[in-house]
């Protein structure tokens, strides 16, 4: 059984001009100890997927269909107080901006101890010792002296380490990291990614890593899901999706990233832009921008189907499967 199982998740936003479907039938699972990368352009629904899982959808957004199972038990329909107990203890969260995640009025030690004691029955002294150990684990030098410092006394990279310690200190089984390195400089970014990867491996924590940076995914994730207009376009092992993308959208996305190792005169570009939620085209949402579009794509919406070693929501693979 997978640690996290998302089945046919649909998230809607009722507005004055009708209901907007921001996530439409998203299904995936994360195994214990696995890092799943989620990529896509802004507005594709990647952050929303994370928010729905930890039960932090901003109203009026709501889960309109599907199920979310953690360890086989449903968590999408829990009352707020039960969900609060799961959040932090079972599922940790790391967000993009470490300054807004930390409370500027409390020392980082107090914030860590509070989180630890909320979820684990430990005395003040033990909780503090554990907080120091976590700060050491995330690579904060002189943790014992700095535990009583306030967030503003740390640099951006150090703050993000504190946030990671905060997310991991109750030893959750799943961490949702939403753009954890986007606000950081490249040299710091590399440190944070290595840290996240090692901690996940040591503690057997599963990670759902949401980012728009394919490079980060390529280095960190075991599997990757590519999202487009509220649906998963392709999901598969990271090597497959990066090197041999099956869905035309993933192919365009990989080609549009400038490379460090070789220079091309012209980048491959996908013309047009992702449709707005109010104007999702009929059939496959990508069909107006797709080079390989054919009649079926304009009428019928494809679900994920086998495409080599990945699964892609693309009719190109329907015929292929029929032969087998």
């Amino acid at each position: 059984m997978s640690l996290l199982d998302v089945q046919d998740l649909t998230v809607e936003f009722p507005t004055r001009r009708g209901v907007l479907r921001a996530l439409d039938g998203v299904s995936f699972s994360i195994e214990a100890g696995e890092v799943l990368g989620v990529v896509g352009e802004s507005g594709a629904g990647k952050s929303l997927t994370g928010a729905a899982i930890i039960g932090l959808l901003e109203p009026p957004g709501r889960v309109a269909g599907g199920r979310i199972l953690l360890d086989g038990a449903r968590i999408d329909d829990l009352p707020a107080d039960r969900m609060r107990a799961i959040r932090g203890k079972q599922i940790g969260a790391i967000f993009q901006d470490p300054l807004t995640t930390l409370n500027p009025l409390y020392s980082i030690g107090r914030q860590l101890v509070e989180t630890i004691q909320t979820h684990l029955r430990l005395s003040d002294r033990d909780a503090r010792a554990r907080a120091v150990k976590w700060l050491e684990d995330v690579g904060i030098p002189a943790a014992r002296e700095r535990i009583d410092a306030y967030p503003h006394e740390f640099s951006g990279g150090m703050r993000q380490r504190v946030v990671i310690a905060l997310a991991l200190c109750a030893e959750p089984r799943l961490v949702i990291a939403d753009e954890p390195t986007t606000a950081l400089d490249v040299s710091i970014q590399a440190q944070i990614i290595a840290l996240l990867k090692n901690l996940a491996r040591e503690h057997g924590t599963s990670v759902m890593l949401v980012t728009h940076d394919m490079g980060v995914i390529a280095e960190t994730a075991d599997r990757v899901a590519v999202m487009y207009a509220g649906r998963i376009a392709e999901i598969g092992p990271v090597r497959e999706v990066v090197k041999h993308p099956a869905h035309p959208y993933s192919e365009g996305l990989m080609g549009s990233i400038p490379s460090l190792t070789h220079r091309v005169e012209r980048l491959r570009q996908i013309d047009g832009a992702m449709p707005r939620l109010t104007a999702i085209p009929q059939g496959c949402a990508f069909n107006p921008r797709c080079e390989k579009v054919f009649d079926r794509c304009r009428v019928e919406r494809p679900d994920l189907m086998e495409a080599g070693r990945s699964r892609a929501a693309c009719w190109l693979y329907a015929a292929e499967n029929a032969h087998v």
């Binding site: 040299s187 440190q191 490079g215 990066v242």
Partner: peptide
């Protein structure tokens, strides 16, 4: 330090310190 598509599955040792 830069994550790159060609680095799938490669482990690296990042340089420490900050600006």
């Amino acid at each position: 330090a830069i994550p790159d598509l060609d680095m799938v599955g490669v482990a690296r040792t990042p340089v420490g310190g900050e600006v």
